[in-house]
Design a protein around this nucleic acid. Structure first.
Length: 331
DNA sequence: AAGGCGGGGTA
DNA sequence: TACCCAGCCTT
C-alpha cells in the first residue's frame, strides 16, 4: 500500500490523512489508483488546498461518497493555513471529514499517539476475541470499548500505528467476515468466540435492509463535434458537486412502466430525435435505481450544458454507465 | 439514535 | 443475491 511506512517509522501525515479519508467504507484495492493520482496532482497539501474544487471532484469521480471530496478540500485549506496537521486527537477530530476513527488513525499512524482506530476490521476482531454477541450497529459502542483493552498491550502502546495496521491486516486476511481462518490465526488461543465455536457468526447483525426501487430517465445529447452535454449537480446531497446528464427526477414508483412519456420528455434538454438506448441499473446505499437512457444528436448544445468529450468526462459511476449505454447505440 | 450517503469485491 | 468494506455528517 503506497501510503504505508516501514514498521517502526511514521508515514507522512498528509499521505496518512489522504488514504484514511479515501478508505472510509472503501476497499483498499479501489483506493490505490485514486491515492496515486491525487499525490501526482497534489504533491503537497498546499497544492491540494490551492486547487479548484472542480479538479478535486473530478479526480474523486467514481470513488463514491462525494461529501468526502468536499470535506477533503476544506480540510486541506484549514491544515495548509495551520502549517500542518496537529499532533493531537481532539484537534484532528475537529477538522471536516475527520471523525473518531480517522482522528485515531492519523494520530496513531502518523504521530505515534497511543490511540486505536476502531474500523470494521478491528470491530470484528474485538467482537470475536471477547465473544460479544449483541448485534451491531447497536453494540458498536460496547465493542469499541472492549477493543480499547487491546491497548493495554505494551507493544500496542509502543507502536500504536504498527499495531493498528497489523489488526487491519488480521481482519482483512485471517479474521474475515464470512469464513475466518481460525486454524492459522495467531490469536486463536485468546479468542473467546473461537473457543465457543461461534467466530464465523460474529459480529451479529440485527437489521434487514429493505432497498426500495426508483425509476427515471437520462438524456445523453451529442453535438456535432461528438461532445456530450452535462450539468453539475448541487454541491450537497446525492452525488453532490458531480457531473450528470440531464434527466427526470428519480421517482419512487411501482415500475418503470409508470413513467409518463410526456412528463419524461419534458426533462429532455433539447428537441431532438431521441432514441432509446436501453436501461441501466445502479444500486445505492438506500435504494436501487433503474434509468432509461435516451440519446440524441444536435448541432450545438443548449445553454447551460457543459460539453465534454466522452472519454475525458470525469463522471460518477452511475453516469458512466449511462454514457456507456448511450455509446453502444452510437457505435 | 437513526438515516443519508457510492461503489465494488466477494462468497 | 446479499453482504460489507481503514465512517462521517445531519437531523
Amino acid at each position: 500500500m503506497p501510503w504505508r511506512a516501514p514498521p517502526g517509522e511514521f508515514a507522512d501525515p498528509y499521505h496518512v490523512w489522504l488514504s484514511e479519508i479515501m478508505l472510509q467504507q472503501t476497499l483498499v484495492a479501489a483506493v490505490i489508483p485514486y491515492f496515486n493520482r491525487f499525490l501526482e496532482a497534489f504533491p503537497t497539501i498546499a497544492d491540494l488546498a490551492a486547487a479548484p474544487s472542480e479538479q478535486v471532484s473530478g479526480l474523486w469521480a467514481g470513488l463514491g461518497y462525494y461529501a468526502r471530496a468536499r470535506n477533503l478540500h476544506e480540510c486541506a485549506k484549514r491544515v495548509a493555513a495551520m502549517g500542518g496537521f496537529p499532533a493531537d486527537i481532539g484537534q484532528l477530530r475537529a477538522l471536516p471529514g475527520i471523525g473518531p476513527y480517522t482522528a485515531n488513525a492519523i494520530g496513531a499512524i502518523a504521530f505515534g499517539i497511543p490511540a486505536l482506530p476502531v474500523d470494521g476490521n478491528i470491530e470484528r476482531v474485538a467482537a470475536r476475541i471477547f465473544a460479544i454477541s449483541d448485534p451491531v450497529p447497536g453494540a458498536k459502542k460496547q465493542i469499541a470499548a472492549a477493543a480499547g483493552r487491546f491497548m493495554d498491550d505494551r507493544a500496542a502502546q509502543a507502536h500504536p500505528g504498527d499495531f493498528a495496521q497489523a489488526l487491519f491486516d488480521l481482519g482483512a486476511t485471517i479474521c474475515t467476515p464470512k469464513s475466518p481462518s481460525c486454524l492459522i490465526c495467531p490469536w486463536q488461543a485468546g479468542c473467546a468466540a473461537h473457543a465457543a465455536g461461534i467466530a464465523a457468526s460474529l459480529p451479529a447483525r440485527a437489521e434487514k435492509i429493505s432497498r426500495p426501487g426508483r425509476f427515471g430517465a437520462v438524456f445523453v445529447l451529442f453535438d456535432e463535434a461528438g461532445l456530450v452535454g452535462l450539468r453539475r449537480r448541487a454541491p450537497r446531497g446525492m452525488l453532490g458537486g458531480m457531473l450528470e446528464f440531464p434527466g427526470t427526477a428519480w421517482d419512487r414508483r411501482a415500475a418503470m412502466e409508470a413513467l409518463d412519456p410526456d412528463a419524461m420528455m419534458q426533462a429532455a434538454p433539447a428537441a431532438a430525435d431521441w432514441r432509446e438506448a436501453g436501461e441501466i441499473m445502479h444500486v445505492f446505499t438506500h435504494f436501487s435505481l433503474r434509468l432509461r437512457v435516451l440519446t440524441g444528436q444536435t448541432r450545438c448544445l443548449p445553454q447551460g450544458l457543459i460539453g465534454l468529450a466522452p472519454e475525458e468526462a470525469e463522471l460518477p459511476s452511475l453516469m458512466r454507465k449511462a454514457l456507456d449505454q448511450a455509446l453502444t447505440l452510437r457505435a
